[in-house]
Simulated assay, not measured.
Amino acid sequence: MAGSIIAAGVAGAAAVLALGLTAAGGAAVESQRIAAVADAAALAAADAASGAVAGEPCARATEVAGAQRASVTLCALDGLVATVTVGARYAGLPVSATARAGPPPVSW
């Protein structure tokens, strides 16, 4: 009888640990996905700012982020450099990432 109680406790603890690790892994994947969306949105905004593609830079960033189930929470331009913050939700919690894109800095 004592062995079955211990076995049930070990099985329960393993199930709780597996659930926690699965949630943590999913959060890590979502974090990387949102970072990639922020990169793509910033590149789209920078391309529009430079004239490489038509359109308003922040509208292009919003379009790219929306295609990936994310929303732009901040879009700022400093010349041809675009800084974009995107956000989404994972398991009911907010996830966000910020990226910058533009021409390389001039070095003399």
Rank of each mutant, 00 (worst) to 15 (best):
C58T: 08
A97H: 02
A82Y: 07
L17H: 02
R33D: 06
R100S: 10
P103H: 04
A2W: 03
A101Y: 10
T83C: 05
D78E: 15
G12T: 15
V81L: 10
L21R: 00
P104Q: 08
T83W: 06
A11D: 05
A7I: 04
P57C: 10
P104I: 10
S31Y: 01
V29N: 05
E56Q: 10
V81N: 06
V95W: 12
G9M: 12
A44V: 07
P103N: 12
R100P: 10
I5C: 07
G12V: 15
V86K: 04
Q68S: 13
Q68R: 15
G26R: 02
G3M: 11
R89E: 15
V64P: 01
I34C: 14
L17I: 09
G9Q: 04
A44I: 13
T83A: 15
G26M: 05
A11I: 11
A7P: 07
A40F: 01
P104L: 14
R100Y: 05
V81W: 04
A14G: 09
S4F: 13
A88R: 15
A36M: 11
T85D: 13
C75G: 11
R60K: 12
A54F: 08
P104E: 15
V81S: 11
E30K: 14
D47R: 02
A76E: 14
A44L: 12
A88P: 11
A11M: 13
G25K: 11
A24R: 02
G20E: 04
A23K: 03
V29M: 12
A97G: 06
P94E: 12
E63Y: 05
A35W: 02
G66Y: 03
I34R: 08
V72M: 06
A2S: 05
M1Y: 06
T83K: 13
P94Q: 12
P57A: 14
A99G: 00
A8K: 06
G26Q: 02
L19G: 15
A61N: 00
G87H: 04
A28W: 06
V86A: 07
R100Q: 13
Y90V: 01
L74D: 14
S71Y: 00
A42C: 07
Q32K: 09
A38C: 02
V10K: 11
A54W: 09
G12E: 14
R100I: 05
I34E: 08
A38P: 08
L77T: 02
V86E: 07
G55E: 03
A99V: 01
P103E: 10
A23D: 02
R100F: 05
L17A: 13
A82Q: 00
L17V: 11
A97T: 01
A2L: 06
L80D: 08
A36Q: 14
D39E: 07
A35V: 00
V106W: 03
A2D: 06
L74P: 00
A35T: 03
A24N: 00
A15N: 02
L93H: 05
A88N: 12
W108A: 14
